[in-house]
Design a protein around this nucleic acid. Structure first.
Lengths: 169, 169
DNA sequence: TCCCATCAATTGACCTCCTCAATCGTTGCT
DNA sequence: AGCAACGATTGAGGAGGTCAATTGATGGGA
């Protein structure tokens, strides 16, 4: 029996986004935000972790002991969602949950030595991924982009407001 | 019986994002993309439609008759997903599906007069919403931001590649 | 002419992500 | 001691997105 090769989609039909959408900064923002997330998830694939996990490790890596509530509030995560994420991190031995002796309702969460190693590994991965994502832009352009995004973030992501604008690298 | 007022969260605990995250353009991109989507959905609320519907109407508003496949490919939507969206638009009488007489597998989708009116109404809403989102930036800065995002989109959202860079307004 | 691979549209299963209310043990105020 | 609030956990539910299977239609090859 003969198997005919699959047809190829008509290459003449050029599917391009309407100019009206491409002209909209917020449309590009939405698409690029999604693309950035996709790329990050792909980059993290080998670790079996998500960007969420990375963000949690970063918060814990800042030193001061954190409760689950403070982690969730810092990152803007739902507390219920955080439970599952911490479960996964704890299962891999990257973080440690222990009761706060001064308030037994709380769990103090800390990085384990393995967690610290994983954090620096994820930092490298994230750095490479970001480098690739921003590849089309020069250093100066990246700085400009970041400054503009930061200005928007101060309005739309108030958690950023307290942070210091990035010092030029 | 006495009802004590609910406790207020400790206002001294300032939850700010780690500098490391705020310094990352792709992190801000992800957060702002989400915020832009949230704001747009809120702005569209009165219409009962989603940004998805708006994008579809825009494509149909360009004039040339479209099949469901071409709409999906243009916008990067899943064809199965598109079915439901078109169902909703058709239910409201904003679009019309009819079989292509030359190829009865296809549905040709067109805007109805009501659809055209709704489209221009949504354009106004989107314009106001975008205006508010970009409020912290000057006209010149918005232009710069858009140009930088467009450069990134050419790499990460190939559908943008064929479009013309925005002419300065 | 008949067969069959391909196609467009549709349907439905499934997974992820996020939000929200309910629960459990703990704490501090009165 | 009693009770309301708190931190963590659980589970339900909705929204979004991906993917495979189905249905009806087309067209090329034997």
């Amino acid at each position: 029996m003969t198997v005919t090769p699959p047809r190829i989609d008509n290459p003449l039909r050029v599917t391009r986004l309407p100019q009206e959408l491409v002209d909209s900064p917020t449309f590009l923002l939405k698409r690029l935000g999604y693309a950035a997330k996709e790329q990050a998830m792909g980059a993290y694939e080998e670790t079996g972790l998500h960007p969420y996990h990375h963000a949690i490790l970063i918060v814990l890596g800042e030193g001061s002991p954190e409760t689950q509530g403070s982690i969730a509030d810092t990152l803007g995560y739902d507390r219920g969602q955080l439970v599952g994420l911490l479960d996964e991190l704890e299962e891999r031995g990257l973080v440690e949950r222990r009761r706060d002796p001064h308030d037994r309702r709380r769990h103090l969460v800390r990085l384990t030595p393995d967690g610290k190693r994983t954090l620096s590994r994820m930092r490298m991965i994230a750095r490479r991924s970001e480098e690739e994502f921003l590849d089309p832009l020069s250093e100066k352009e990246r700085s400009t982009l970041h400054a503009l995004l930061f200005r928007l973030a101060k309005k739309h992501e108030p958690r950023c407001a307290n942070a210091v604008p990035r010092t030029s690298k």
